[in-house]
């Protein structure tokens, strides 16, 4: 895949994906990156993911807490705030509304 284009798509949607993953429960950076990769979005580098997390934290959509791991280093765990849930609903719905017609157009074009 063209990495530039993928980067552009990710820039638009990565924050909503992170919010969505966090709605399942709290998580930390590395775990989120793994989850995104497993879900098929592809490998997300730390340099891309953490600035997003920082921005979400700064705008109050997530809170973070350092916790000692049982066996391993302390990790910074993120969880959604009420504002975060609201932003996820709004942004997620907007995305789905946006992407449906796009999928229709593109599916028709590719299958021709």
């Amino acid at each position: 895949m063209d990495s530039d284009r993928r980067g552009q798509w990710l820039r638009g949607v990565l924050d909503i994906c992170v919010l969505a993953l966090l709605s399942e429960g709290e998580s930390y950076g590395y775990q989120l990156a793994q989850a995104l990769d497993t879900a098929g979005v592809g490998p997300i580098q730390g340099g891309t993911l953490y600035p997003v997390l920082l921005r979400l934290q700064k705008t109050g959509l997530v809170t973070a807490q350092w916790r000692e791991g049982n066996a391993g280093p302390a990790r910074k765990y993120y969880r959604l705030t009420d504002d975060g849930y609201a932003a996820l609903r709004a942004g997620g719905s907007a995305w789905l509304t946006f992407v449906r017609p796009v999928n229709d157009i593109v599916t028709k074009g590719v299958s021709r």
């Binding site: 950076g29 590395y30 990156a33 730390g46 953490y50 350092w66 391993g72 280093p73």
Partner: peptide, 18 residues
Amino acid sequence: AEAATHLREGGGDPWVVF
């Protein structure tokens, strides 16, 4: 610290990861 933890968990070259 978070970057350090990430590198410890996932390994990899920081120049690539970050």
